[in-house]
Amino acid sequence: MRFDLFHTRVDAHIRKAQEYLQAANLARIEHQIAADHHLALASMYAQRVTWLEQELSESVSRFSPPFRGVMTVAAEGGKRGAESVVSLQRSAPVSNG
């Protein structure tokens, strides 16, 4: 009986390489499935953004001009400009009586 302690075993190396290949293929398939899932989610959220922007635009058009200016500033990500200043005036004095 001969001991090959310092020699590589070719059949063990091939089996290990095949195991690594199978694991790599499985990981590739799992990541492809995850990528397809994320692509579907991104598409769904893009449709939701479009729908919400349309709903917001329609509801904002029903309000008076001071609210329209506030909603425009909020929709633009908080950019400040001349339209962002809204002054509200009291229509009748408040009595403490």
Rank of each mutant, 00 (worst) to 15 (best):
A23C: 01
R15F: 05
V60W: 05
E19N: 08
R9A: 01
A40T: 09
R90S: 07
P93G: 02
D4K: 14
V73P: 00
L88Q: 06
F63E: 12
A46P: 00
A74I: 14
F6C: 05
A74W: 14
M44H: 10
L26G: 02
S87P: 01
R9V: 00
M1Y: 09
T72V: 09
D11G: 00
V73L: 03
G77T: 02
P66S: 10
V73M: 08
N96R: 07
D36G: 15
F3A: 12
V73N: 08
G78R: 08
N25T: 12
Q32L: 13
A75P: 02
G78D: 11
A40G: 11
R90F: 01
E76M: 08
G97L: 06
K79H: 09
A42P: 00
H38D: 08
H31P: 01
A17W: 08
P93C: 02
L41E: 11
A35E: 15
L39R: 14
R9F: 02
M44R: 13
R2K: 03
E53P: 00
L5Y: 01
G97I: 02
F63R: 13
V10W: 02
A12W: 10
Q18M: 09
I14E: 11
H31S: 12
R62T: 04
P93R: 01
Q47E: 12
Q89M: 05
V73D: 07
D11Q: 06
S59Y: 12
S95E: 15
A92S: 05
D4H: 13
I33D: 04
G69T: 12
V86E: 03
L88R: 07
L88H: 01
R28I: 13
P65E: 00
R48I: 09
G77R: 06
M71Q: 05
F6K: 10
Q18C: 10
R48W: 08
S84C: 01
R68I: 15
R90G: 03
R2M: 04
A82P: 14
M71C: 15
R62A: 09
S95Y: 04
F63Y: 12
Y45R: 12
